[in-house]
Amino acid sequence: MASGLENEYVTLHEVVKAAKVRLTLTYLDDMLLLDVADDGVGFDPAADTAGYGLVGMRHRLAGVGGTLTVESAPGYGTTLNAAVPLPGADR
């Protein structure tokens, strides 16, 4: 998750002009969730996102069986959710 975070950090400063960022780590018995919520300009997640580094983050997360969800809308900031299953939690 660490290199994904670096990407997000650069993005926050240079692209979306976020003033505040809230990181929330949620431990559940079967998975780990990381939310990164900023109050930046937001964007339309359905549009082309190649320039935002999300593809790379998603790819790295997929390497550990995780997923990346992007929630955003112009004017509403952006929240990224990275979900990683914990070992031994297979159902």
């Binding site: 809230r22 929330t24 949620t26 969730l33 939310d35 929240t79 990224l80 959710n81």
Partner: peptide, 8 residues
């Protein structure tokens, strides 16, 4: 309200 994603 809780500053997390809807996914969470």
């Amino acid at each position: 309200r809780l500053l997390v994603s809807e996914t969470t």
